[in-house]
Computed example of a mutant assay.
Amino acid sequence: MATKSSMRIDCPSCGESFDADFWTVVRGDRDTGLKEAIISGEFDLLMCPRCRGVFSHEETFIYLDTEKEILAFVMPSSYSGESEKWTAKMREDYEAVRPTLFQGQPVDHEPRCLFGIDELTALLLRDRDAEEETDVMEFMAREADLRVAHLLPSRARERDILFSVPYSGPEPTRGAAIEALKKIEAANDALVRVRKTRELFEKLSGDPLPFLKK
């Protein structure tokens, strides 16, 4: 679950000093309300108890979604000028918190360092767009009696392709996926990631389906 801590904050409008709670770990796969607050821009807003002014205040937190393979250390945007320094610090902190975050489970994806909550918001919105396009593809695949194989989310995200791919036949091979993607593309050429996935698979070699989620 999500965790939080408290610290002393000064209101930028009236100078009032007060204790404010900040989330230190957000589980995007469990805390849907917090995830939506990040997307809507309400996550880091505070209200001064004296003047009632509302302002944003950035503090470092960890965003974790194991299902989507997202592990991000979200730091204040002002840290971006020393990105190498803070990225190195992130890797040190990651090794310290890794056993607690994953409870000894193996992790294949690497943590990423984001500077400013806007970078996390952009990532989540891109994911949402890709998920919606993937849902449309899966619906069309079912209508066409095609099967669907899920890809590793982190690998798909890096390449901005679908999170799953259609295929025909008993096994999800690269060739079977390409042929199925062509069928989906012929039926709806507005699905950009269908085309991008097909084009990427055509450039690769070998028969096994790449990035297949076990």
Rank of each mutant, 00 (worst) to 15 (best):
D145T: 08
L120H: 01
V148R: 03
Q105F: 07
R147H: 13
F115N: 08
E119D: 14
A141I: 05
D127I: 01
F115A: 13
F102H: 06
C113M: 12
F115I: 10
A144F: 10
L114T: 02
L123R: 04
D129F: 07
E131T: 07
V107G: 12
H109F: 15
A130W: 00
L101F: 15
L125N: 11
E132N: 11
R128C: 03
A144N: 13
T121R: 15
L146T: 03
L146E: 02
T121K: 15
M140Q: 14
F139H: 12
E131A: 11
F139L: 11
V148Y: 03
R126N: 14
E138K: 12
D145V: 07
H109Q: 07
R147G: 12
D118A: 12
R142N: 13
G104M: 08
T134C: 00
V107D: 09
T121G: 05
V148E: 01
V148A: 03
D135R: 13
L123F: 05
C113S: 15
H109E: 06
T121M: 10
L125H: 03
D108E: 11
E131P: 02
M140A: 11
V136F: 08
I117R: 08
M137I: 07
A144C: 08
D135S: 11
L123D: 10
L146R: 01
R142G: 14
A130P: 01
R147D: 14
T134S: 05
A122P: 04
L114M: 15
E131Y: 05
L146W: 02
E143S: 12
R126A: 13
E119I: 01
E143W: 07
D135L: 10
I117C: 09
R128A: 14
V107H: 08
L120T: 02
E131G: 01
Q105T: 10
V136P: 02
E110Y: 10
D127E: 13
V136A: 13
F102M: 06
D129S: 14
P106S: 10
I117M: 11
A130G: 04
A144L: 14
C113E: 09
E131F: 04
M140L: 15
E138Q: 13
L125E: 15
F115P: 03
T134Y: 00
L123K: 05
L146H: 04
A144W: 06
L114K: 02
M137E: 01
E138V: 13
L124T: 00
D145E: 11
D118M: 10
D108R: 13
P111W: 02
E131N: 11
L125K: 14
L101M: 14
G116K: 08
D127L: 01
L125Q: 15
R112K: 14
E143I: 07
Q103Y: 07
E131S: 05
P106C: 07
D108A: 12
Q103M: 10
L123I: 06
G116P: 09
D127G: 01
